[in-house]
Structures are given as structure tokens and as C-alpha cells.
């Protein structure tokens, strides 16, 4: 079971400002889903290697040759706060940074 404090902790890690109602709902819904998922912990998986990825690519190297990239002004077109210097504007981390 996930309690309210755990939900708030995970929400903070995930950078999600959940409403009180959402916190309540997440606690109940995620607990139900996790109860179902728990069953895989009953399997005997001793000595089984993990599979993070099905394609067996260890290092995908290519020749270190520069190729054209998108112009800066094109990339900045989608930014909510492009700066005059040509960067992405962000608010100050401020006191509440975490």
C-alpha cells in the first residue's frame, strides 16, 4: 500500500504538483496496480539475467565527423522564453529548489 507521504515523495521526485484530490486518488489507484504487479515477485528468478534491451548493441560508434545541425534560431522558435543572447530562459532556482 502506498500512503500519502509516499505519494508526495514520488510526486516531488517526478516534479508533479498534484492536487490533494489527485494525491488521494493516486494512493488508491497505484496501490491496486502494485498489488496486481506484486505477483511477479513470487516467481523463482534466481540466477536469471535481466534484459533491459532486446537489441544487443554494446557501443554504437560512428566516425567522428561533424554534420550540419539545426540553426539556433530555428530551435529557439519553440521555446517558451528564448533569451536575446540565444539561450533558453529559465526562472531562478530560488529558495525552494529541490
Amino acid at each position: 500500500m502506498l500512503d500519502r507521504a509516499q505519494v508526495l515523495h514520488v510526486a516531488r521526485l517526478a516534479r508533479l504538483d498534484l492536487s490533494d484530490e489527485e494525491v488521494e486518488r493516486m494512493a488508491s489507484e497505484l496501490s491496486k496496480v502494485l498489488d496486481h504487479i506484486e505477483k511477479i515477485r513470487e516467481l523463482d528468478l534466481h540466477g536469471v539475467p535481466p534484459t533491459a534491451h532486446v537489441v544487443d548493441v554494446v557501443n554504437a560508434f560512428r566516425a567522428d565527423v561533424p554534420v550540419p545541425c539545426l540553426p539556433r534560431e530555428v530551435v529557439l522558435q519553440a521555446a517558451p522564453d528564448p533569451t536575446p543572447e540565444g539561450g533558453f530562459g529559465v526562472p531562478s532556482p530560488g529558495a525552494a529548489a529541490g
Binding site: V10, L16, P91, G94
Partner: peptide, 29 residues
């Protein structure tokens, strides 16, 4: 105009729908 953390977490809370939030929470957990 808020601090960075608040901007991040309110942007994401506003922009994502319920199922996406649910899965982000599940995955983060």
C-alpha cells in the same frame, strides 16, 4: 515567474493528463 522547481512541477501538473501522471508516478516509484 516562480522559482524553477515550482515552474517545473506546475507546468507538468497542468500539461499532463491523468493517465500520464499515473504512469509517471508508477515509473518513478
Amino acid at each position: 515567474s516562480a522559482d524553477l522547481y515550482t515552474m517545473y512541477s506546475r507546468t507538468r501538473a497542468t500539461g499532463f493528463g491523468t493517465e500520464v501522471k499515473r504512469r509517471i508516478m508508477l515509473g518513478t516509484y
